[in-house]
Amino acid sequence: MDLPLKVFERQDRCAIKRLFDAMHELRYGTSAPDEPAEIVSLRSTVTGVMRKPPQERVARGRSAPDKAAFTGRRPVYLDGKFRPTPTYARAALTAGNCISGPALIEEHAATTVLLPGDRLEVDACGHLMIKVAGGR
């Protein structure tokens, strides 16, 4: 039930009960105006401008990823055959790193596949910005 601010400010408990009875009647077809009611939950909504939360940023690096980020090579089935493909640990990538496909970017719960011709750059927040081969 919506509680108009005016009723709240007046601390008009009878008006609150009347509003409740009317809403009960509308929703359930019955009401109990002679019975007392208990307020068991009160929700309020406040509107305003919040301060923006801080953005997590990753360390700045060079164009070539650190050696620590390179974790090896794995055979990946691409264009009809298995090709040894470099793998990188996402957690070790830093802002500004660039990687050309094919490559695999691995992390705990996901693997990002970079196809041949795709080009990846890590932005300031650690996002993987990928320019897909053939994309505009």
Binding site: Y28, G29, T30, S31, A32, E35
Partner: peptide, 13 residues
């Protein structure tokens, strides 16, 4: 009486 009203609610629903 509360339960009676609740039953009225049910049949009206």
């Amino acid at each position: 009486m509360g339960d009676l009203r609740a039953q009225v609610t049910a049949v009206k629903t």
